[in-house]
């Protein structure tokens, strides 16, 4: 067992006192969620998870364990893949997101997403941020201006781009592009923001800035972040879920999970015995 590893993560942990999950208000819940890309080969097996509102929750686990799949279930991005199957329920604010009463566009407006590789549209910075509100029917110029500014401020990008909002978003650096994507998701005023390894393609300084941004969002938004980097999970999250081959192994507040894991698998993973 590597003592050094545990110590590093221990340092990274936030010192803030976290309630136990049972005391939190739950915003996303799954009930026996099974997911198939191909029939007979489940990518998610009987996942039951309850994600607390306005907290940062991290999904960790080795590659291919299903953490991104689970994340993409929450805004039904998996629907784009042909021939998938979902069994079980996903409840957001108590509503089943697969029910016919829920418009897919409304769900995605409420559940924003930031992707692994930044994907700004080939338009101006302003147009990028205003895209979400526009497709959701916002046309007033003053309203859009306000939304663009506040979103960029929240994503910690306003200072850097306020003088060149009409420049192409593609001229920004990689880290700025990713923060722009966060701002773009924020512009829809979502309740939940899903982040799929948002910093995995960035250098350490840009990664630091993304983490600062997540810090800013804490308390106002429910953030669910998938990460490969355990230190990152320890630094930014309040709760952490550990997954293995499609199953949710352990879900607890981050401090407990990293310092006092209940399961042997979790301990082996966070101490670096595999993965």
């Amino acid at each position: 067992m590597s003592d050094k590893m545990v110590v590093d993560i221990g340092k990274a942990l936030t010192s803030e006192k976290i309630n136990s999950i049972n005391e939190e208000k739950i915003i996303i819940a799954t009930e026996n969620l099974n997911f198939y890309y191909v029939a007979d080969k489940p990518a998610l097996i009987d996942v039951n998870i309850a994600i607390p509102e306005k907290k940062v929750t991290a999904f960790i686990g080795p590659s291919g364990c299903g953490k991104s799949t689970l994340l993409r279930c929450f805004n039904r991005m998996n629907d784009l893949i042909p021939d998938i199957k979902v069994h079980g329920k996903i409840l957001i604010d108590g509503d089943d997101i697969h029910s016919n009463n829920i418009r897919l566009e409304d769900l995605r407006k409420k559940v924003g997403m930031v992707f692994q590789r930044s994907n700004p549209f080939p338009m101006s910075i302003y147009e990028n941020v205003a895209f979400g509100p526009k497709v959701n029917g916002e046309n007033s110029k003053s309203e859009l201006d306000a939304v663009v500014e506040s979103s960029l401020v929240q994503a910690d990008l306003w200072r850097e781009v306020k003088d060149r909002l009409n420049d192409s978003a593609l001229d920004l650096s990689g880290g700025q592009q990713q923060r722009l994507c966060i701002a773009r998701a924020l512009a829809n005023k979502p309740d939940i923001i899903l982040m799929d390894e948002p910093a995995s393609a960035l250098d350490p300084i840009s990664t630091g800035k993304i983490e600062e941004t997540i810090e800013e969002l804490r308390g106002n938004y429910t953030v669910v972040i998938v990460t490969h980097n355990m230190q990152q999970a320890a630094r930014v999250s309040d709760y952490t879920a550990f997954m293995m081959v499609g199953e949710l192994v352990e879900f607890n507040d981050t401090r407990s999970l990293f310092t006092n894991p209940n399961k042997k698998l979790t301990e082996e993973y966070i101490t670096g015995r595999f993965g």
């Binding site: 805004n75 991005m77 784009l80 566009e105 409304d106 995605r108 407006k109 924003g112 997403m113 992707f115 590789r117 994907n119 700004p120 549209f121 080939p122 895209f131 979400g132 497709v135 959701n136 994507c181 773009r184 998701a185 829809n188």
Partner: peptide, 27 residues
């Protein structure tokens, strides 16, 4: 047209036609 851009638009709540009109066609 990069798949990431199409997914990005859909993830923002765009309908398929909005995605085609705003992202696919211009690109």
């Amino acid at each position: 047209v990069p798949k990431a851009n199409k997914e990005g638009a859909l993830a923002l709540g765009a309908t398929k036609w909005q995605m085609i009109k705003d992202i696919v066609l211009p690109n």
